[in-house]
């Protein structure tokens, strides 16, 4: 599989994302923000970082970059897109995912390991995650508090669009386990058509035992599985 990893000025998890995909036996390459096309691509990763310095709002400027117009088209044609951390913020700003990410409730930049509960395995991003398995993955963000109005949250729930939630080591949805104040402990969601997803935690930093966890692999393996089993040849 060919993964396109976007690069904006001040992306800083792009190398990690490419490394993770290659480590797991697939190919990945960088696509610069000024590109108008994604080329031969099976899936897009929008990596973490501080695109365009996070000026104005996180992701606000990145969404208008030429490459994001190509990503929009790719997503509209059913292509798989995963945004990690700043990538999640970019996808929300772009309107590819509902809601927004605001300043952490604590006002602190939180850099730590968290536990995630996978709320549904029915998505291209979660299909290989064993039911009930908690994922131990790191977070590193100052603006990761997921917010959407109550109507949007109930739509997310009724469509089964919440993919991951912050939980404690026992798998319970508690306030203390919520590192940023996100509504309903939401760590990641997908769109209604389930081909675009975003999450604040970093699965690409949890793919090697040396880094303390390999749970992030399950998210990438879900993507590989979905791509391998997709009904048509290529999205766009």
């Amino acid at each position: 599989m060919n993964f396109a990893v976007l690069q904006f000025p001040a992306s800083n998890c792009d190398q990690d994302a490419v490394h993770a995909v290659r480590l797991l036996g697939h190919s990945a390459r960088f696509v610069w923000h000024k590109e108008n096309s994604l080329g031969d691509t099976d899936a897009v990763l929008v990596p973490g970082g501080f695109s365009y310095g996070d000026y104005l709002r996180c992701g606000a400027i990145a969404r208008f970059s030429p490459v994001m117009q190509a990503v929009k088209q790719f997503a509209d044609n059913g292509g798989l897109v995963l945004g990690i951390c700043n990538g999640f913020q970019v996808l929300c700003e772009a309107g590819l995912l509902p809601g927004a990410l605001i300043r952490n409730r604590s006002l602190q930049f939180r850099c730590e390991q968290v536990f995630l509960k996978t709320t549904t395995t029915e998505s291209p991003f979660t299909n290989q995650i064993p039911a009930g398995k908690l994922l131990r993955v790191p977070i590193a963000h100052g603006e990761g508090c997921y917010f959407a109005d109550t109507d949007t949250i109930s739509t997310l729930k009724s469509n089964n669009q919440i993919l991951w939630q912050y939980v404690n080591a026992a798998g319970e949805l508690t306030d203390i386990a919520n590192p940023n104040g996100a509504v309903d402990n939401i760590a990641g969601i997908c769109n209604k058509t389930r081909n675009v997803a975003g999450l604040m935690p970093h699965p690409e930093r949890a793919c090697e035992a040396l880094l303390g966890s390999t749970d992030g692999r399950l998210i990438f393996e879900s993507l590989f599985h979905a791509l391998k089993n997709r009904p048509t040849s290529k999205a766009a």
Binding site: I102, R103, N104, R105, S106, L107, C145, F147, D149, G181
Partner: peptide, 13 residues
């Protein structure tokens, strides 16, 4: 300004 329904930890602090 942040919408009234949105958490504003800066304002609170």
């Amino acid at each position: 300004t942040p919408k009234k329904a949105v958490l504003d930890p800066q304002g609170k602090t």
